[in-house]
Design a binder for these strands. Sequence first.
DNA 1: CTGTTAGCGCTTTCAC
DNA 2: GTGAAAGCGCTAACAG
Lengths: 337, 337
Amino acid sequence: MVTLKDIAKKAGVSMTTVSNVINGNQGRVSEETVERIKTIIRESGYVPNQAARSLAQRESRIIAVIIQAVGKENIFRNPYTAEYVGALTAELYQNGYYPLIRYTDDYRDVEADLRGWNVAGAIFSGTFPRHLKNIKSLTMVPTVFTDCYFRIPGANHVGVDDVSGGQMAAEYLAGMGHRRLAFIANSIDESDVDQHRLEGFREGLKPFGVCLTDESVLPTPATVYDRELLKALVEREDRPSAIFCTADRVAAQLMKTLNAMNISVPEDISVMGFDDLPMAEITTPPLTTLRQDIEQKAQLVVEMLIRHIRNKELPEERTLLGVKLVERQSVKRLMEE
Amino acid sequence: MVTLKDIAKKAGVSMTTVSNVINGNQGRVSEETVERIKTIIRESGYVPNQAARSLAQRESRIIAVIIQAVGKENIFRNPYTAEYVGALTAELYQNGYYPLIRYTDDYRDVEADLRGWNVAGAIFSGTFPRHLKNIKSLTMVPTVFTDCYFRIPGANHVGVDDVSGGQMAAEYLAGMGHRRLAFIANSIDESDVDQHRLEGFREGLKPFGVCLTDESVLPTPATVYDRELLKALVEREDRPSAIFCTADRVAAQLMKTLNAMNISVPEDISVMGFDDLPMAEITTPPLTTLRQDIEQKAQLVVEMLIRHIRNKELPEERTLLGVKLVERQSVKRLMEE
DNA sequence: CTGTTAGCGCTTTCAC
DNA sequence: GTGAAAGCGCTAACAG
């Protein structure tokens, strides 16, 4: 185990000098010694000890990535979460940071992580509003919130324009002649992402004189697994001719269930998703959906976070990313009646 | 920022005593003081500093999770990887360890991580044999390899019985009357998981007098995206009546491509997958596949690793998990000809 | 059962 | 440009 001290000894300089070389502190060391030390470091296979560094600097190169747990489901079975965290991970490494991925519903875990690891920053995804007030450490460390809405002053945020997304879905479906519509959420009571998509959907429907009844909004995460609820919706006299889902995954589940009920998509019922994940292309029929650019989102999030890590005085930032309609084959054009 | 020292002062005891309480060192502290100190800790919201702990103990509570990168694709777009890492993550947290997820093809990164963070252990997934020899730190830290085959003495391993899986696929397809068969891999040159599945497939085909020709083994990861290669296979006079894929994801892509070529599954060609991920249920038709229990695998891996962290003298262990045929609707029974 | 002490490997004033 | 020395917060002998 070779240490900084060993390098210093071998180079015949002080630890300070070596440290300055490692951290690229400009102008403190002569070109010549820099080169000499760098060579020695390379040859000896020296790797800095992160724990020592974190301890001395009172800040690690770890970024906590906190995902809102929903039930005890495998965190990455949700393909959106998987893709998003994958993108964040890549982006963090590229910038010299290490992700600490935490999936929890107990915000004491979060606090312990943030403090215990002296994280440089934190990224939250999908956090339920009721939890935010419990996280005291937030004021201590630069943070970016994503996939959630809230009103904490000073909080940075990168989000998707969920309202516009909902509106685009409404306009598209209405434009295709649909007037009897429904909405299926993941967790509408808790997730304000779902709420915003619904709000936009309602808003977009208004000009067409369409109003979503309460029974047309399926509220629980169990929905797509719960045949009964769906049955009630689908077996009504005036059953919807199109259903807008808050996520591709929900749409895929829905299509599977409809299929089992012998209701064909899009012939009998049209379906729309949200996200445009790879799965949207392998369903039958391929899913019409609203695309959000997850890689771009991850990049913006990490850039924003690093900006705030480097300069703690920066005022809060908020960015909303647009979505794009991707037309495939799960929505049918209705004849004028 | 309250430290262990503060707690000691407040309790009127030494740091050692507090440390012993925190680490649950039995019998070194009286019941009474334990309670008193625990109360103080709780009330003051003390969180131990992981960096200091790691430094003093020369070992962190971090477990490196190393995923073999294939190209620069988003790590978790591969649903198998996503599900597996999700399960590992949960399992690690449950045991008081923190996952450090690294997705790379450059094994200098791996070494730097293992050494720099003083990881307690490492879990490798899908590592290509050509990389193993480059990782020197391996001998230093308890490690479990998964989804790969190799011959490093002393290496722990948890794997899936890929050979049996391939065999089962062969027997099933042959039993359904198929005699013209093909195999599609992810990355057959590099992945020995793919190679073992193919080997088992060939083995299982033998009793039926069926022999896989070279043209019936599609070798590159590009395959399913590469219409040309697939076309050559599928437009032959004696085109296969069934194709066994090394992963559900490959099977799903294949079905999508066949669909675009106006070849229907299973009417024209039958398809089998491997893994039984959630996606196998949402394809049309639902995919017949070989199920591996990922949660169980993750649990075994973490248990094994922890065993070896606690007792570094333990001899190497190797476990092979079985797979199970899950019959859905992507394979057609052929009439006797 | 409890305390003293000497580090773990690195950063960071502050002198030179 | 370079170096000496004092920690960062915790653990682990070793004494008592």
